[in-house]
């Protein structure tokens, strides 16, 4: 009986450690995506949205509004790929400046840069996977 009990503990330790290592594997992947995303951000986004995602006046919206990023998560890939020409409210302010399309960015580039933006400026910890980006891009209006 003690043996079985001991075995059960060992098995649960194994599963728990597997789960936690799986978690940290995901963390590493998120960090890798964010690092790659930073390079893309500097080349394609920083000019308007600023080094820290602070935006510029009422010309370019900040990328630090967690509420906006969460509510519009499924649209973000489409906005990067196709640009945006509509009035939006970010961080309590109204913006309507035409954002150009970024047709040269691949699906994985978009996953990288969105991971960088949402984890760094948006204080989230969830990765933008390639699959998520591709699924969102199919649904672009």
């Amino acid at each position: 009986m003690t043996k079985i009990y001991f075995l059960a503990i060992l098995v649960s330790i194994y599963f728990l450690s597997a789960m936690s290592s799986c978690q940290s594997g995901e963390d590493i992947k998120t960090a890798q995506y964010a690092v790659n995303g930073q390079k893309i951000y500097i080349n394609h986004c920083k000019n308007c949205h600023g080094e820290k995602g602070e935006g510029l006046g009422l010309l370019y919206p900040p990328l630090t509004d967690v509420d906006f990023l969460t509510k519009n998560r499924e649209r973000l890939s489409c906005i990067i790929r196709n640009g945006l020409n509509e009035e939006i409210t970010v961080a309590g302010k109204t913006f309507h400046t035409i954002m150009p399309a970024n047709e040269t960015l691949t699906d994985i580039d978009i996953a990288y840069v969105l991971t960088y933006i949402t984890t760094n400026f948006g204080k989230q910890d969830k990765i933008f996977s390639l699959e998520e980006v591709q699924q969102d891009l199919i649904n672009c209006k």
Partner: peptide, 15 residues
């Protein structure tokens, strides 16, 4: 005004 390259950074700094 619709310059996508260096102008936003330049005017951000001039601001």
């Amino acid at each position: 005004t619709h310059c996508p390259s260096i102008c936003p950074t330049m005017n951000r700094n001039l601001l």
